[in-house]
């Protein structure tokens, strides 16, 4: 009778919803040891709440599922990697066929490659302009020399 009164007090519902105080939870756990039938009652309440929630589900957006599952795949990839290896990888998205996994050093390599390509491009433009300038100066000098020769030749 006392147990029935205890169950009817709503303590199990309070525990299931996370509203029971620490003392109430400790008391419930103690009572569950004394009366194992309370375990069945906890399960009944949880199943009722589960049925109620399943009656009105709202599916989260697909991208949420992708985010959660991507994390699982990523962790799985790590779990099966060689733990003794010193390599560090940037895991982009393994095992879906559209993405690749590359070594961290590729990132450094591409940054250096990008910077060097810019430096070489700058030098190429710089020396091209310098070359054109020297060509123009040379042609100006040549024209000057020809003009000088032409101005001197009538005197001869």
């Amino acid at each position: 009778m006392e147990l029935k009164f205890y169950i009817e007090s709503g303590i199990i519902e309070s525990f299931v919803l996370g509203l029971a105080s620490d003392e109430e939870v400790a008391e419930l756990q103690h009572m569950r040891k004394l009366y194992p039938e309370l375990d069945t009652e906890v399960e009944f309440v949880e199943r009722r709440l589960e049925r109620a929630a399943f009656d009105e589900p709202a599916m989260p957006p697909v991208e949420i599922r992708d985010r959660v599952l991507q994390k699982i795949r990523w962790e799985q990839g790590h779990a099966y990697s060689d733990p003794s290896s010193n390599y560090t990888f940037i895991n982009i998205q393994p095992k879906d066929g559209d993405h690749i996994t590359v070594h961290r050093w590729w990132k450094v390599f591409f940054i250096i490659f990008f910077i060097m390509s810019k430096v070489f491009l700058f030098l190429a433009i710089f020396y091209y302009l310098k070359y054109r300038l020297s060509q123009e100066q040379r042609s100006d000098n040549l024209h000057q020399m020809i003009r000088q020769e032409q101005t001197q030749s009538p005197l001869l």
Binding site: G18, R32, D39, V42, E43, E46, E50, A53
Partner: peptide, 12 residues
């Protein structure tokens, strides 16, 4: 956890 179903455990 004291819960009997995964749903109740997750809900908490």
């Amino acid at each position: 956890s004291g819960h009997r179903t995964l749903f109740a455990w997750l809900l908490r």
